[in-house]
């Protein structure tokens, strides 16, 4: 089975360094990069179930549609597409409002503070 992963973040350096790190640690077979919530939503909507990523690393602060916007749109996705999908919320925000909101959100598996540690990556990317 393909270990498919999506990184949703507008920070190009974060995109690049995280992708390199995951590849080096060999934690995924396929890594897709998206700049904002709208792009990933379109991709999930258009892609067949078999090709969908099973883990999303979702940033909060993004232009157009941020992490929260995406989560709202995500609700309209087909139920079987969502069934085996885990969403990790990534942010450098330590604002307790964000942390609490994320912890309370039923779709979010975990809230992770940036910068992301290798050990954390290994834990959450155990497919």
């Amino acid at each position: 089975m393909m270990r498919r992963l999506a990184i949703i973040d507008d920070d190009t350096i974060f995109q690049f360094t995280t992708k390199v790190k995951i590849e080096k640690l060999n934690l995924a077979d396929e890594i897709k990069i998206f700049g904002d919530g709208e792009q990933i939503f379109q991709y999930l909507n258009e892609t067949i179930l078999a090709d969908l990523p099973s883990i999303l690393l979702l940033d909060i602060n993004m232009p157009i549609a941020d992490g929260w916007d995406f989560l709202e749109m995500y609700e309209s996705l087909d139920a079987d597409k969502k069934e085996n999908m885990k969403i990790y919320m990534l942010s450098s925000s330590i604002n307790p409002v964000d942390v609490e909101k994320a912890d309370a959100h039923p779709r979010i598996t975990k809230y992770i503070t940036k910068p992301i540690q290798d050990q954390v990556l290994q834990e959450i990317l155990a497919f």
Partner: peptide, 24 residues
């Protein structure tokens, strides 16, 4: 404070990640 923290953490994290990448 939150905004500052957030907006400064991102580039700081990026610098760290880039250096890690090069050192590797």
């Amino acid at each position: 404070a939150y905004i500052a923290s957030h907006n400064l953490r991102s580039p700081a994290g990026n610098i760290r990640a880039l250096l890690d990448f090069y050192q590797a």
